[in-house]
Computed example of a mutant assay.
Amino acid sequence: MSPPPAAVIEPSLIILPDAAPSVVRDTQMRRQAFFAVVMAAMCIGFSAPLVRLADAGPAAIGFWRLFFALGPAMVWAYAEHRSRAHQARRAGATALRPSLRQVLLAMLAGVFFGADLIVFHKGLALTSTANALLLGNLAVVFVFLFGWLILRERPTRGLLIALALALTGTFIIIGSSAAGGGASGARPVSVIGDLLCVGAALAYAAYMLATRAVRRAGRGDAVPLGGGMVSLIASATGAVVCLAWAVAAGEVLVPQSLQGLLAVIGLGLIPHATGQGLATFALGRLPAGVISVVLLLQIVVGVALAALLFGEFPSLVVLAGGLLVVAGVTTARPG
Results as ranks from 00 to 15, higher is better:
196 L>I: 10
196 L>W: 09
197 C>G: 03
198 V>A: 06
198 V>N: 11
199 G>S: 07
200 A>R: 11
200 A>G: 14
200 A>V: 05
201 A>V: 07
202 L>N: 04
202 L>K: 01
204 Y>D: 10
204 Y>L: 12
205 A>Y: 12
206 A>H: 07
207 Y>A: 08
208 M>I: 12
209 L>H: 15
209 L>S: 13
210 A>M: 13
212 R>H: 14
213 A>N: 10
214 V>Y: 02
215 R>I: 10
216 R>A: 14
216 R>T: 14
216 R>W: 15
217 A>Y: 09
218 G>Y: 11
218 G>K: 12
219 R>W: 10
219 R>N: 14
221 D>Q: 15
222 A>N: 10
223 V>Q: 12
224 P>T: 08
226 G>M: 02
227 G>D: 13
228 G>T: 14
229 M>N: 09
229 M>I: 04
231 S>P: 09
232 L>G: 03
232 L>Q: 01
232 L>C: 02
235 S>D: 06
235 S>Q: 03
236 A>D: 11
237 T>D: 09
238 G>S: 06
238 G>Y: 02
239 A>R: 03
239 A>L: 03
239 A>G: 05
240 V>Y: 00
241 V>M: 02
241 V>N: 06
241 V>D: 08
242 C>R: 00
243 L>D: 07
243 L>N: 00
244 A>L: 00
245 W>L: 04
246 A>G: 06
246 A>N: 01
248 A>W: 01
249 A>R: 01
250 G>N: 06
250 G>S: 00
